[in-house]
């Protein structure tokens, strides 16, 4: 009886949500009638918001990937906040898992020789690919967060194959601190040079080349290293075995 009531409730909620979503325009609607006030030119313009990002985005930031331009350049301060939230989450996981430190002196079965050899072979390849993802963040899909997750999964593979493996905490902390410092210093330099935090002060270069888009690649490399070391720290706190 309880399950039937729950199912009916779920269906009712689904119908209400579906009716609400039918009214929202997705995709192909023409927004060119939408006027907005442009503070730079000090007049009303008739460009729509998506048109503005798609057309002027490449000129404003020099980045080929508009999503990266929005995440790092237009909304760069939000990204700094996201990285801080991730850092706090990693700290929380580390401090909770510290309680279970005693339990980690357990017996573990060794992995198969096939898995050990394959993880040795694949580790370098996976780290290289993660670095490729965050270095090319302004040219191809991806960026700091997926690249960091790929690097952390390479370390996770080593933790799975060798139960006695553990990464050096000092190295992780140093890498994470340096990356965070790079992000903040890049923002403060922008503040110093042109008066706005995270201003894109480097030359844009030619779009679609690796050295283009100003400080976007620098910030994405910093975000990638920071996310990678934080997620590796979480993996280490959960799976590492101390001698």
């Amino acid at each position: 009886m309880k399950r039937i009531v729950a199912a009916i409730l779920a269906i009712l909620i689904f119908i209400v949500l579906a009716l609400a979503f039918v009214k929202i325009p997705f995709g192909n609607i023409n927004l060119s009638d939408y006027h907005y006030y442009n503070p730079i030119t000090d007049k009303q313009t008739s460009d729509s918001v998506p048109q503005h990002y798609l057309v002027d985005g490449k000129k404003d930031t020099g980045s080929t990937n508009i999503v990266t331009a929005v995440v790092v350049d237009y909304r760069g301060f939000d990204t700094l906040g996201e990285v801080t939230v991730l850092f706090l989450a990693a700290t929380g996981v580390g401090s909770i898992m510290y309680i279970f430190e005693k339990e980690k002196r357990r017996k573990v079965r060794r992995a198969n020789a096939v898995v050990e050899t394959a993880s040795q072979l694949l580790f370098g390849f996976i780290v290289l690919f993660g670095a490729y993802i965050f270095v090319h963040g302004h040219l191809t899909p991806g960026g700091g967060f997926p690249g960091g997750a790929v690097i952390a999964s390479a370390f996770l593979l080593l933790y799975l194959a060798y139960p006695r493996f553990h990464a050096e905490h000092k190295t992780l902390n140093v890498a994470e601190s340096l990356a965070g410092l790079t992000f903040v210093i890049a923002g403060l330099l922008g503040l110093l040079i042109s008066g706005s935090f995270l201003y894109n002060f480097l030359p844009f270069g030619v779009p679609t080349y690796l050295f283009s888009a100003g400080i976007i690649p620098v910030i994405y490399v910093a975000v990638g290293v920071k996310v990678g070391s934080e997620l590796t720290g979480i993996v280490d706190a959960m799976m590492g075995v101390r001698e």
């Binding site: 992995a111 198969n112 096939v114 898995v115 394959a118 072979l121 694949l122 390849f125």
Partner: peptide, 16 residues
């Protein structure tokens, strides 16, 4: 190449 490396390893680990 990646599929050629990973598919047999995953299958072997799963079988064992």
């Amino acid at each position: 190449l990646f599929i050629l490396l990973t598919a047999p390893v995953g299958a072997s680990a799963l079988a064992r």
